[in-house]
């Protein structure tokens, strides 16, 4: 039986009196490339925050690598890329390299020094992989949205995590950068064996990449392979042919 990297069991999250997530149950096993899609306000980000232990669920259980999310400590196994950092202070004085190095913190013990000679190969690899070695000394706040996202993805992958969770990472990217970003994710998945959970609005692209799809609208409406999704009469009835086609046509 494959290792479950993430398991959510009957998870309920309430926000200001209403249920943002209702009875959500699914699991992610090693090697999955899971796409999570859903309309605005459907609870996708809440789901990710609950999965990471950032938001304790009101009911149900969240397990990361078999451990309750609230007491999970093996952060070196996990990389996280949040939604584009809209609140990032443009005057924040950290360089791209300083930000990327922070991704090695889970690998360190107190006092947690990062950026020493031992860390150089990992940092270089991440900077090169994302094509941002040339801007390593630039301040993160002065970069374009796309460059910031690449820096944050480099930070997320620098420690070579087994599970990579990305919350709408392509919102701030232009189409060309978005395609490059997806290609890189595919390489990480295929060649690096990284398990990926990708939350996205970009339903057209997710169809061509993910091995499994979850459609969320406060609860899980669909969980299965893309083939199932594309050939399901039930889903056609639910989404309408046009929406279903949008996800499936690139597949």
């Amino acid at each position: 039986m494959s290792l479950e990297l993430l398991a959510m069991k009957n998870v309920v999250c309430r926000y200001q009196g209403h249920e943002a997530l209702s009875d959500v149950t699914f699991s992610v096993t090693a090697g999955d490339y899971l796409g999570i899609v859903g309309p605005n306000g459907s609870g996708k980000s809440t789901l990710i925050r609950a999965a990471l232990g950032l938001l304790p669920p009101d009911a149900g259980q969240v397990l990361l690598f078999g451990v309750e999310a609230a007491s999970f400590r093996q952060w070196r196994r996990l990389g996280y890329l949040p939604q584009s950092m809209r609140q990032l202070n443009p005057a924040f004085p950290a360089t791209v390299e300083e930000v990327v190095r922070l991704g090695l913190l889970p690998h360190k013990r107190f006092p947690r020094r990062v950026g020493g000679r031992r860390d150089t190969p990992a940092v270089e690899r991440a900077l090169e992989a994302l094509g941002i070695a040339g801007i390593r000394r630039k301040l993160i706040g002065e970069l374009s949205g796309g460059q910031q996202q690449r820096a944050l993805l480099a930070r997320a992958i620098v420690g070579r995590p087994e599970l990579l969770i990305l919350d709408e990472p392509t919102t701030a990217l232009d189409p060309e950068t978005r395609e490059r970003f997806y290609t890189l994710l595919e390489e990480l998945h295929r060649e690096g064996g990284t398990t990926i959970i990708l939350v996205t609005h970009d339903t057209g692209s997710i169809g061509s990449m993910a091995s499994r799809l979850i459609y969320v609208d406060r609860k899980i409406i669909f969980d299965g392979t893309l083939d199932d999704f594309c050939h399901s009469a039930e889903m056609t009835a639910f989404f309408g042919e046009a929406s279903q086609h949008l996800i499936c046509h690139r597949h």
């Binding site: 949040p82 950290a94 913190l105």
Partner: peptide, 23 residues
């Protein structure tokens, strides 16, 4: 500040990211 420099930097940069880095 020297002993906790990287943790202080991580939390200052983004608290959620810091938490998911084990800070």
């Amino acid at each position: 500040v020297s002993l906790y420099y990287n943790e202080l930097l991580a939390v200052t940069f983004d608290e959620d990211l810091a938490r998911t880095s084990g800070v």
